[in-house]
Design a protein around this nucleic acid. Structure first.
Lengths: 223, 223
DNA sequence: TAGATTGTTAATCGATTAACAATC
DNA sequence: TAGATTGTTAATCGATTAACAATC
């Protein structure tokens, strides 16, 4: 058959939370234009309009977009309107930081349980949640119909835990481990890679320093 | 003049750490082919070759690439070969997690000092580093010639701290605050947005659930 | 009305993918 | 040698950007 809705481009999806964040912060204003949004987020107005068009909402020429409508539309599009339940596995450095981060309050994903395979960590409290042994995950996931798993375990444990999640009915995995997971195609996997941003940053800096140096060299040679 | 080297595409830059990670883990093998790398990282071999070509290295037909050479070339390209010094500002949940994460060991960025404007946090130790008052940043940055700043403060403080960094000689900022920074164009800014990946994940899940439901609906109607 | 802003349609740009001769 | 793998050149794909008529 035909898909119910056209797939939204990944870059657009990744910008949507930024719009949402901005809109929530100006909720008192009734309307906003793409020009203004663009100025605040450092985006081209035309890109803002293209992105917002994905929500299905239409703005009004000369006026702009209705802020409350827009907020609701984006939340609905992202599935952030009604709270969904999730598990996190791995409460090391990164995992416990994620639990403390406001990330999940804004996003309608409620982390209802934390797991770890390390007996030292089991039983401890991390940001108000008791850490459970990994063995309890399958039963609990099925009973609570949990569909999202956050994976913040070491690289060598990731594939195994991911398979456990899938066999327990979890349909989407947010993967912070630096490995490529091999899972059935119907499972939604989002890889989060903290190294990639740092790589881009440091390469650009290295390049800039090299350029500056060669510029200086030419200048010095010229005088 | 002409640029010394052609700019490397951002997507390629973001994949380079993954190659590096893989190569380091198989350092005992002398050579590897793009086919094999692709299989391990779930990438097309042609994409691997295109990416690796950016390092300037050439592989040998039938053989593949020299692993140690490749490691060295990628590290050099990213500027991860010799350690660079950096500061972090904001040691809340996320900031302290970053400090504990192996991120900086692998990447040649050495975080030599942590700062916070909260007097409660100043003086405390976070992952072996004493937290200094923000006022000390400018002087220390200049004296140590620090060029990289990691910004993990709340959104409303980010612009101010970023400006302080820039006026202290910092040239590259890794920004975890969910705001668009306004800084001179020559400053390298890398925005890290944890919400964007979650948005992509939850939208895909919401879409899948809707599709599954409508499929089931049609099936039920048909019988 | 005049002018700012919209959505649409087309052009541009850049990354990915494909095809293939060269080569060890 | 035969076959796997490379780098190059061209085709495809998709996102961004530009142009512009419609409109409040």
């Amino acid at each position: 058959m035909f898909p119910t809705t056209r797939a939204i481009p990944e870059p657009t999806l990744r910008r949507l939370p930024r719009y949402l964040h901005l809109l929530r912060s100006i909720e008192d204003r009734p309307v906003i234009s793409s020009t203004r949004i663009g100025a605040l987020l450092q985006l081209e107005p035309i890109q803002v309009r293209k992105d917002l068009a994905c929500t299905g909402l239409v703005g009004r020429p000369k006026i702009g977009y209705q802020v409350p409508e827009l907020i609701e539309a984006i939340e609905k599009l992202l599935g952030w309107n009604d709270a969904r339940q999730g598990f996190i596995v791995g409460v090391g450095k990164l995992g416990s930081a994620l639990l403390g981060y406001p990330l999940f309050q804004d996003s309608g994903l409620k982390i209802v349980a934390a797991f770890d395979s390390d007996p030292e960590k089991v039983g401890a409290k991390v940001h108000g949640r008791i850490v459970l042994p990994l063995e309890k995950l399958p039963d609990l996931a099925r009973r609570m119909r949990v569909m999202v798993g956050v994976l913040s375990v070491p690289a060598d444990a990731a594939q195994g835990v991911a398979e456990l999640m899938v066999s327990s009915g979890i349909m989407a995995i947010w993967n912070f481990a630096p490995v490529a997971l091999s899972l059935p195609v119907e499972i939604i996997v989002q890889n989060e890679d903290l190294y990639s941003g740092l790589a881009a940053l440091s390469q650009k800096l290295a390049m800039k320093l090299k350029e500056d140096a060669s510029k200086k060299g030419r200048r010095d040679a010229g005088k």
